[in-house]
Structures are given as structure tokens and as C-alpha cells.
Design a protein around this nucleic acid. Structure first.
Lengths: 251, 251
DNA sequence: ATTGTTTCCGTATGGCCTACGGAAATGGGG
DNA sequence: CCCCATTTCCGTAGGCCATACGGAAACAAT
């Protein structure tokens, strides 16, 4: 399905939830069976195991042994729940500010990558209208502080920031796609590619694709590591080169 | 919902569809009311207008004035239809091989970006288990040929390839996210951010976020252009820096 | 015991994908 | 002209989904 998000609801309500603004205690009335935190935790657990597609309100309620509609007392809707989930997992990066600006950017990238690894469904969460909660904001502050220390002009810092952010989320997302599909479909990436051996046998045209053929013959694809290993090193390689470029552009 | 894909069906059947292997003519039997091409075209039209979430089998059938189940005669299922859609739009990049390797990579990025602009639902299509059709393969051949001309070692070409591919798809995806959300939710990005003015008023903490505050005060966010303009220039900036880094790494 | 407040949740509406199997169309052979 | 193998068309049905609505249930204070 399409990207899963909204935050379309009342901004004030959503922000209060994201920052857990404690409503004044309610002395009267029925005691709640579940809390917002429990709902978010359960939702994350379901999504971790079975993907965001399986994270339905009914499924989460079942997890908590509660009626489906009870959730709506605590959370406005599914879109807002996803906002809460995303900000919660972004808070898992505890970012330690040490080292050069480059080291700190790489640290940020590494921690963010780890979030995607632990929660592959983040691939399906759009970040262009992000949850304005502590998880997101702390991360932004961290990278911006690092980039500002690099010596770039303020305006350049913001441009570089968008580029870095785009790379990190984009690369982490595609890296994680593989595992997510493996988990949801029950078929590993290697198995999937293996089943498509027919393609190379029956459809690949050596004359139409000379560059690929040459690389193949040069042994460029004779790699020892697994598919996941290769994506990992490309992540590191790409970030390094991007930072090289940013650094070089300052002179 | 979650990323929309599968290609989980019979690889041989899917490949035959992707490459439009003409089945031997059927002399007898009822004449088909629709063709595979018509189905793919209609599906793309729906997704372009209303997003991939709205592209249901029923909706596409309606578009063609045909019963829902008729589609299943021509296409194995929804996952395979999405494969066909993705490969079809990737074919729209007609890639002209001229100029230096850098110019060609940038040309590739530009054409791919254009595909995302024209078909924002591509954001929701995973590319880790891609449709092995002509659209994808021609693109791969084009970038690989360019990168191979750069003088990188064969093994390095493949690593750089993954990094470039990741950047291009990732950046194009987030760039397009904004418009897609605007189209689906009916709320523009600027309007969305405007409605979250409360955040800066009520939640933003100047002491907790000194770097952001400093940048703000330095006028780094006093940009004339629209949100879309800024994302566009960050795309170009990021790709440039990445290529700078790749080029510099060869020395 | 009554009342006000809050939470819980069953039901209903309208959507989705697709397995199944029968109806309808088509062209060739008798 | 009829029959029939072949192919396509498509209605029905089952099992998912989000959430609006409104009444039942629990709790504290009176």
C-alpha cells in the first residue's frame, strides 16, 4: 500500500501526545485498562514482527487483550499512532557528542541505521511531514550541531543537512527493505534471486548489456559476502564519499 | 500501508509479462476485451491521480469498464501488476549516452528523478527485489557503463553503483513524498507546516536546541524559495558532493 | 443510592484481494 | 446449422481493514 502516515489530525492533540504532556489527573471516572505507552509499545512489537501492514488497530488491541475501539480513547487514530511509534524508536538512538564533526555525523548515521535495522517498518514511514517529537528533534539538533562545527556557512549547513538526512534515511531504508520483505513474505533475498536464475538464462542479452557483461567477466560480482554485507559497505562508502565532497566543497 | 510489492508469484510468468513475450496466437476462444498494456496503463493513470493506495483491482477494472475478476485472466495478481507498472514508467527515461561519465550519471539521476516526479507512487514501490524488465535493466546498464568509464576498479564500480542508486532513489522518493501527501490528503506541505506553528510557540525549547536556534538566528532558514525548490537543490547538491567524493577517491 | 465522569467496546458501513465455478463468446469440423 | 473445445468474462462469497456512533460499565463524590 501507500506510505503510511498522516498526522492529519489536530496538531495540538498530536503534539501533546508526542511530548507526553501530562493531562491533569482525573480523580473521577473509570480506571483505564491501557496507557498510551502500552499501546505504542504493543504496536511497535507487532510491526517489528510482522511489518507495518500487519499493524492494524484490531491486531494491537488483541495484543493488549482489549477491545479494538478502546484504543481510540487514548489515540486519535492510526496515523497518529504511527507518529508516536516513529518518534519512540528515534529516541532509541542515544547520541553521544564526542569527536570531530565528521565522526559525529557518522555516529548519527550509524545510530539511525541501527533504528532501521531494529524496526524495518520505518521504511514505510514518510519523513517529510515528520512527527515533531523529542526523538526527531534531538536527532536534528545533533546533526546540525555537528555540521555547524564543520565551518560551513549557516545557509550551507542547512543544505548539507538535507542531503545527509536524505542519504541516511534513503540508504537505511533500502538496506532494510530486504529483511522486511524476507520477514513478511517468508522468502529470503537469496532464495528470491535464486528463483530468478531463469532471467539470466532466458532473458539476459549479452549484446544489449555489454557493460554489465564486462563487469561480470571482470569478476566484479564475485563477492564473498552476503547481500546484506554488500549493502552495509555501500552505506558506509556512500556516506564517506558524501562527507568527502562536503568537506572538499568548503575550500 | 506497508511497501507495496511482491513479484512473489511464478517468476517465469512474471518475466514473460515484463518482456511481453508474445504467446503463440490463440485461434479459438472468446476475444479479450482488454490487453495487459491497457491494464497497466489504466493502473498507472489511477495511481498517478490518486496514489498507489487507491489503485485497487476494482478501481482499475472500473476504469476499463470491465468486471474486477476479468483482470486476473491477464495478470496474476496485484503484486505483479505493480511490477509491470514500475518497469513501464522506468522505461520512460530515454537515456542518451553523451558526455563525460559524470554528466551521464547526472543525466541518469535527472531522468530517474523525472520518473518519480511524474509518478509519485514510485515512492511506495520497493526496489530491492526489482522487476527484472527492460526498464530497470536499461537503466542499470546505463549507469554501470558510465561508472565503468570513470576509471574505477570493477569491484569499486559495483560499490559506487549501489551508493549512487541508493542516493538517487532515496532522494527522489523523499522529494516526491511531499507532493504525494499533498495530493492524497488534500493539504499542501506549506499549509501542514503552518498548522504546526503551535510547535514553535509551545514546545520548542531554546536551551535544549542551541544549534538550531543559532542557525535560525543566523538567518539560515530565511530562504526565498518554496519547500519544493529547496528539496530540488539539495538533490543536486548531494549528488554533486557524492560524485566529488567518488572522483576524489580514485586518486 | 444517586449522579457525573470517564473508559470500554459491540455493531455497522463500506472498502480491500482473490478462490471458485459457471456463463458467454468464438471459430472450426461435421 | 449444430456441436464443442477453448478462452475469456465476471458474480458471489469469505475474511481482512478503519472508524463513527451510542450504550454499558466502572469509579469517586455526594
Amino acid at each position: 500500500m501507500a506510505a503510511e502516515r498522516s498526522g492529519g489530525g489536530d496538531p495540538a492533540r498530536t503534539l501533546a501526545l508526542l511530548w507526553r504532556t501530562p493531562a491533569e489527573p482525573k480523580p473521577v471516572g473509570r480506571k483505564p485498562k491501557v496507557s498510551v505507552d502500552q499501546i505504542v509499545t504493543a504496536a511497535i512489537a507487532v510491526a517489528d514482527r510482522e511489518g507495518l501492514g500487519a499493524m492494524s488497530m484490531a491486531r494491537v488491541a488483541q495484543e493488549l487483550a482489549v477491545g479494538t475501539m478502546s484504543l481510540y480513547t487514548h489515540v486519535p487514530g492510526k496515523g497518529e499512532l504511527i507518529d508516536l511509534m516513529a518518534d519512540a524508536v528515534l529516541q532509541e538512538r542515544d547520541l553521544a557528542a564526542e569527536g570531530t564533526w565528521r565522526e559525529r555525523v557518522k555516529h548519527y548515521a550509524d545510530r539511525t541505521r541501527a533504528v532501521y535495522q531494529a524496526h524495518p517498518w520505518m521504511r514505510d514511514v514518510s519523513m517529510v511531514r515528520p512527527p515533531l517529537g523529542p526523538g526527531l528533534m534531538d536527532g536534528q539538533e545533533f546533526v546540525l550541531a555537528a555540521l555547524a562545527d564543520s565551518g560551513l556557512e549557516p545557509r550551507q549547513v542547512t543544505v548539507a543537512h538535507v542531503a545527509v538526512e536524505g542519504f541516511v534515511h534513503g540508504a537505511a531504508a533500502s538496506e532494510v527493505d530486504d529483511q522486511q520483505l524476507a520477514a513478511v513474505t517468508g522468502e529470503s533475498g537469496d532464495s528470491w534471486w535464486g528463483a530468478r536464475q531463469v532471467f539470466w538464462d532466458d532473458y539476459f542479452d549479452v549484446e544489449r548489456y555489454p557493460a554489465m557483461t564486462a563487469l561480470w567477466n571482470a569478476g566484479a560480482y564475485d563477492t564473498a559476502g552476503t547481500l546484506a554485507d554488500n549493502m552495509r559497505s555501500s552505506f558506509d562508502y556512500g556516506l564517506d564519499k558524501l562527507l568527502d565532497g562536503i568537506e572538499g566543497g568548503m575550500r
